[in-house]
């Protein structure tokens, strides 16, 4: 097992009338890309806010690098929470200079991180003249200052156009490939699926699921089938080891398989056994369904 970068135990937070977090436990390992997934208002930002010292918690504890909660540990973490926060009247370079002094890292890294996010040509312009996408990229540049081994990103693609979203995701994948540990909060399943290795699902402040993205993908293939010989088809399906579950509905069978195969191959296997299908639908996007299912189960 790789080393634990972040450990969270029993974290709780209550705003006046809302229980924002209830006894949250998490463990993030070195070099993993950990997704914190959940609908808006599920407690993702509250969690990250507490872990980064901005929000007081009511109970529980957390520990970075196995060394506790001390503020200086955050200098080794690159983090952006919600909207990018910079001094509007300062240009990109001056803003990063402030961050460099706080993190006690060299200012020499500033041109390189600006280059990396494609802001070199705008480095002398005031932050307030930036578009949302540029602000977000500056936030990532700022998070990269001091070459941190851990990045915490809260909804990094929020409000960006499709091209901006693609660029940021590509950058996250690159950063992960460099061996950094990344904690990513998102309400977009698709985002977590594309960039994360592990994830936890939050709902109303409670963790209702934790697992690896690979595991989640296993549940992906579902076939909706029917034939004139329903009983024969059912018994045939129950013989196959790659069929995980068969559910019977009014005029169709709902078949979950563990092995990825095309619809054609599935059809051929049935034909070989003498079953002519009258209906065959391979359900795509069932990951979304699975996610919604998890959310439903959490209720």
């Amino acid at each position: 097992m790789s080393e634990t970068v972040l450990e969270v135990a029993g974290l709780s937070k209550r705003y006046k009338r809302i229980q924002a977090l209830q006894a949250l436990d998490l463990e993030v390992h070195e070099r993993s890309v950990f997704g914190l997934l959940g609908p808006n208002g599920s407690g993702k930002s509250t969690t990250l806010g507490i872990l980064l010292g901005a929000i007081h918690r009511d109970g529980g504890s957390y520990s970075w690098f196995g060394q506790g909660e001390a503020h200086h540990l955050r200098k080794r973490i690159g983090a952006i929470l919600e909207t990018p926060c910079f001094y509007h009247y300062l240009d990109a370079e001056s803003n990063l200079r402030v961050v460099a002094r706080i993190k006690e890292c060299s200012e020499e890294a500033i041109p390189a991180v600006l280059e990396r996010v494609g802001l070199s040509n705008r480095r002398k312009d005031a932050f307030k003249t930036y578009s949302l996408g540029m602000k977000q990229r500056l936030a990532i540049a700022s998070a990269l200052l001091g070459d941190p081994s851990v990045l915490v990103l809260d909804e990094p693609t929020n409000g960006l156009d499709p091209q901006g979203i693609a660029e940021i995701r590509e950058l996250i994948v690159e950063l992960a490939a460099e061996g950094r540990t990344i904690v990513l909060a998102s309400h977009l399943l698709d985002e977590v699926q594309k960039v994360c290795s592990d994830f936890a699902v939050l709902k109303q402040g409670k963790k209702i699921y934790q697992g690896s993205v690979a595991e989640l993908n296993e549940h992906e293939d579902v076939y909706i089938v029917n034939s004139n010989d329903r009983e024969g088809l059912k018994s045939l399906l129950s013989e196959w080891s790659f069929v995980k579950q068969v559910k019977e509905r009014e005029d169709e069978l709902y078949v979950q398989v563990t092995e990825a195969m095309g619809a054609a191959e599935f059809n051929k296997k049935c034909m070989d056994k003498g079953q002519a299908l009258t209906k065959l639908i391979r359900q795509s996007g069932s990951l979304e369904k699975r996610f919604l299912e998890i959310l439903r189960q959490g209720q």
């Binding site: 955050r74 983090a79 929470l81 926060c85 910079f86 001094y87 509007h88 961050v99």
Partner: peptide, 18 residues
């Protein structure tokens, strides 16, 4: 008040200032 308006006081703390 600039710090509060731009929420940079929060970012300062996140970046490692106590």
């Amino acid at each position: 008040s600039n710090e509060f308006t731009y929420r940079t006081h929060r970012q300062n703390v996140i970046d490692g200032l106590s």
